[in-house]
Simulated assay, not measured.
Amino acid sequence: MENEELQQWVEKVSLQYFNKPFLHKATFNSRLKATGGRYFTTSHNIEISPHQLQAFGKEETEKIIKHELCHYHLHLLNRGYRHRDQDFKQLLAYVGGSRYCNTLPERGASKQAPYRYVLQCTDCNQQYYRKRRMDTSKYRCGKCRGKLLIKQLDKR
């Protein structure tokens, strides 16, 4: 899908669910990976993640469009357009938009990365697994207050 098709789709959803025209620009932004879309309060433009469309299809992407259009229309009406505002929550529920977007499959896999380091106490041999390297001189064992040694489990 191209930006022109997205623009028409957003305009159609705006008229169908909000009974108001979308008069600004809607584009895809391939850098959006942790979020489904975003609305800019200064330019009133909307960006949508193409990765959400590829991974979850048109139905979920339309819910993201409805979410961003809630921000858009409420902001232009000078009403509560932020996530915490009651106006936003009510309009989002009314039009059937999604509150949160789904996690992309490749992002979920990266969160499940194995541990790379193990900290071991020299006194009681208690082990602590860590994904990130840390300065062991600043910490002690939580069980016996002994000194910790760091070992790398695998090399990437």
Rank of each mutant, 00 (worst) to 15 (best):
R31G: 03
S110L: 14
Q16E: 12
N19I: 00
Q16G: 00
G37P: 08
F40R: 10
S110I: 15
I64V: 15
Q16N: 04
D87Y: 06
L104N: 14
Q90S: 13
I64Q: 13
P21A: 07
C124D: 05
E68T: 03
L104T: 13
R107H: 07
Q54D: 04
S43A: 01
R99A: 11
N29M: 04
H83Y: 12
K66M: 13
L92F: 05
K155I: 03
Y81T: 00
R99L: 11
S137T: 15
R133F: 13
C144E: 12
P114V: 12
K20A: 10
K138A: 14
Q120E: 14
V118W: 04
I64H: 12
R156S: 04
Q126K: 15
K155C: 00
E4C: 01
T61I: 10
Y100R: 09
A109S: 05
F88S: 02
C141F: 06
K131R: 15
Q126W: 02
C141G: 05
Q90G: 01
L76C: 05
R133V: 06
Y72V: 07
V10Q: 07
G97F: 11
L74S: 10
R116N: 10
C144A: 11
T27G: 01
L92W: 06
K89I: 13
Y128A: 00
G142Q: 11
R116F: 02
L15G: 04
R82G: 00
T61V: 15
C141L: 06
L77N: 11
D154H: 13
R130G: 08
H24P: 00
H67A: 07
G96F: 03
G80V: 07
G57Y: 05
Q127T: 12
E68M: 03
F28M: 02
N45F: 00
D154R: 09
Q112K: 14
I65A: 08
E47H: 07
L6I: 01
P114E: 15
F88K: 02
R156H: 04
L92Y: 03
A93K: 15
Q8D: 13
Q152T: 10
L77H: 04
K25W: 01
